[in-house]
Simulated scan of single mutants.
Amino acid sequence: MAGERATSFGAEAYNYEAGRPEYPFEAVSWMLERLPDGARRIADVGAGTGKLTRVLAQAPGAEVVAIDPDPAMLATLRERVPGVPTFAGTAERLPLPDASVDAVVLGQAWHWVDPVVASLEIGRVVRPGGVLGLVWNIRDEREEWVRRLTEIMHSSPAENMVNGPTGPQVAEPFGETQERRWEWNRSMTRTQLHQMAFSRSYLITAPDEERAQIKREMDELFDELGLGDGTIDLPYVTTAFRAVRG
Rank of each mutant, 00 (worst) to 15 (best):
Val162Ala: 13
Thr76Leu: 03
Asn160Met: 15
Glu141Asn: 11
Arg127His: 13
Ser29Thr: 11
Thr166Glu: 15
Ala2Glu: 06
Ser187Cys: 03
Ala109Arg: 09
Arg80Asn: 11
Ser156Leu: 07
Pro115Leu: 01
Glu209Asn: 11
Val84Trp: 02
Arg41Asn: 07
Ser29Asp: 07
Asn160Gly: 07
Glu79Asp: 08
Ile122Glu: 06
Leu149Ala: 11
Ala118Arg: 14
Met218Gly: 01
Met188Cys: 04
Pro128Ser: 05
Gly246Glu: 09
Pro85Glu: 14
Phe198Pro: 08
Tyr16Glu: 08
Met31Ile: 14
Ile122Asp: 06
Gly175Asn: 02
Val126Ser: 09
Val65Lys: 04
Leu96Asn: 13
Ala66Tyr: 00
Ser201Leu: 03
Thr191Gln: 01
Val64Asp: 04
Glu17Met: 06
Ala2Gly: 14
Tyr23Met: 11
Gly226Leu: 02
Arg216Glu: 08
Arg5Val: 08
Val244Trp: 07
Arg211Ala: 14
Phe241Ile: 08
Arg124Ala: 04
Arg186Ser: 13
Arg41Gly: 03
His111Met: 12
Lys215His: 03
Arg211Trp: 00
Gly38Asp: 12
Val117Asp: 14
His111Gln: 09
Arg216Gln: 09
Thr150Ile: 14
Glu12Asp: 14
Ile42Lys: 06
Arg139Trp: 07
Asp140Ser: 10
Glu183Ser: 15
Asp140Lys: 06
Ala27Cys: 09
Trp110His: 06
Gly46Asp: 05
Gln195Pro: 11
Arg78Pro: 05
Asp140Glu: 12
Glu22Arg: 15
Thr166Phe: 15
Glu172Thr: 07
Gly107Ala: 08
Leu96Pro: 11
Ile42Cys: 01
Gly89Cys: 08
Val45His: 11
Ala171Arg: 05
Gly19Phe: 08
Thr53Cys: 13
Arg80Val: 12
Glu224His: 11
Lys51Ala: 07
Glu26Lys: 07
Tyr202Ile: 03
Glu224Met: 08
Glu17Pro: 11
Glu176Val: 12
Gly61Arg: 06
Thr76Val: 11
Val28Cys: 10
His154Ile: 08
Leu221Tyr: 05
Ala39Asn: 09
Tyr16Ser: 05
Arg148Pro: 10
Met1Ala: 07
Thr166Ala: 15
Ala109Lys: 13
Ala43Gly: 11
Asn163Gly: 15
Glu159Cys: 10
Thr231Asn: 00
Pro21Leu: 05
Ser29Glu: 05
Leu32Tyr: 09
Glu121His: 14
Tyr23Arg: 09
Pro168Thr: 00
Glu33Arg: 12
Gly164Asp: 13
Trp112His: 11
Glu183Leu: 10
Tyr16Asp: 04
Val117Met: 12
Val65Tyr: 02
Ala13Tyr: 05
Met31Trp: 08
Ala59Asp: 06
Leu94Gln: 04
Leu132Thr: 10
Pro60Lys: 04
Thr76Gln: 02
Ala43Gln: 12
